[in-house]
Structure formats: structure tokens, C-alpha cells
Design a protein around this nucleic acid. Structure first.
Lengths: 119, 119
DNA sequence: GCCATCTACAACCAGATGGTTGACAACGCC
DNA sequence: GGCGTTGTCAACCATCTGGTTGTAGATGGC
């Protein structure tokens, strides 16, 4: 699981991390402490979650005194979108070809099909 | 990790499973044996992978004698796409609001900003 | 300089994951 | 009915994951 796409999917497979991403998207940058507040887990656990998101390239971090503001990097979403769209289009393309084949077959066996449809 | 969205992301976090999805999208339904052929793992391992994809709702299976053809269910991709697009739009919306705030602030402190920009 | 705050690192633990091998169930073909 | 093919189930194993607690580093306020 070394490639980035795997890390991104893996990072978003956790509801807590998805919720963090949602909050970062809605409310902007946040410190680890702020991110941790709504959840009933230790700050260390949240720090680990942030690290997973960071390793996936979904967030970046800067420095502001003791704080390490977490910033959402929306571009990485493109990786997923591209992957998803590619295969969705392939599926649709395959269906179009399949329809063409079926149509051609229907031409060849028109009489048989008419009988079948009538039953 | 009980919700479907988590299961979908989790399922696609594995490169082997993503490759299977890619092949199903490109070449249509396939048996477990056909799916297993390109990989250097046991058929049982591939059967497990298919089960993960099935539990996520990404594929369905029918019966054809001993075979259990695996069929890609492209609709589930919509779940992910919707989730991703929602937050991408939120980010963009937030940036627009942020720009507006910055513009308003620039109006109030125009002289200060000019000095800052000049440095 | 000292203290409080914010965060990270390390060690540990239970449970999930991805792989293996072996047994066996379901089915078509002789 | 017996055999080969296809796929699943069960047990086992090493590793990863998400959580904990405890310790320690960095930094601003006093």
C-alpha cells in the first residue's frame, strides 16, 4: 500500500477522518486540539489521524507558535475523481459496444426475436 | 467501519482490488478464476478480495453452473463522487467568502496593505 | 527562568487485514 | 456413480490499525 491513491482511499475509509476532512472543508484550517474537541478520543489519537491524512497528501501543516494548523489540500481529490471517472466511462463505453453487438445480433435473427417478443 | 462509504473506500484502498475493478470495467464480468489469473496469489485470496468488494456493494454475483460471475455495480461510485464533490464545493465556497472578507478588509486598511505590498 | 499549552513520539494492546494451506461443497461431463 | 473444475469455508499466521498511557519537545506568557 505504497502508492498515493491507496493511501488516499485508506485515509478516507475511516469515518472520523472523513469527518475531519468535512470540517476542514467547511470551516477552514484548524489546530489538532480543535480537530480533537468533538471526538471522545485522546488528542494523541487525533494526531495520528492527522498524520494519516498528511501522508496521503490530503492535508498539509504549517507552524504558528506551538500550534500546527492543519490545512486541507483539495487537489488530491482530483486523483480519486480521475480514477473513478475513468472506470465509470469505461463501463459506459462497454455498454454502448454491448448494445451495438446486441443490435447487430438482433438484425441477424430478427424473425426469432420477433417471435420471442410476441410470447 | 460499518457504513457503506467506509467499506467502499476501504475496498478501493487495495491496489489488487482496484485492478480487479479496472478489469471488470474494461472487460466486463469475470469468474473468480479469471480474476485470479494475473496475480501471483491463491484463488482463495482472490475470493476474499471479491467478498470485500461485494460487501462494499461494488460488485454483485450470480450463478452459472460452478461459476460465480462477478459483475461491477457502477452506481456505487456515485456515493464517492457525491461525497468528494460536496467537500470540494465547500472548499471553493469558503475560498470565495474568504476572498470577499479579504477584499472588505483591504477596503478598510487600504493604506496599510499598500505599504505591505510594497515591501 | 519557570510554567502552562500544544503537539509529537514510543510502547503497548485488541482487533482487522491479507496471505497461506487443507478440506469440502456444487456442478457438468463421461 | 465417479471425476475434474470452480469456488468457499476454516484455521492459522504476520502485519497493520486505531486506540490507550506516559514522556518529552517547542513555544509564548509571566
Amino acid at each position: 500500500m505504497t502508492d498515493q491513491l491507496s493511501r488516499v482511499f485508506q485515509a478516507l475509509a475511516d469515518p472520523t477522518r472523513r469527518d475531519m476532512v468535512a470540517r476542514l472543508a467547511a470551516e477552514g484550517d484548524a489546530s489538532v486540539g480543535e480537530l480533537a474537541a468533538p471526538y471522545d478520543v485522546s488528542v494523541q489519537a487525533v494526531s495520528k489521524h492527522v498524520k494519516v491524512l498528511e501522508d496521503a497528501g490530503l492535508v498539509s501543516r504549517s507552524r504558528d507558535a506551538q500550534r500546527r494548523p492543519v490545512h486541507l489540500e483539495a487537489e488530491v481529490f482530483d486523483l480519486m475523481t480521475k480514477w473513478i471517472e475513468r472506470y465509470r466511462q469505461q463501463v459506459e463505453e462497454r455498454y454502448r459496444r454491448l448494445d451495438a453487438v446486441l443490435a447487430a445480433t438482433a438484425e441477424d435473427t430478427r424473425d426469432d426475436r420477433e417471435e420471442g417478443a410476441a410470447s
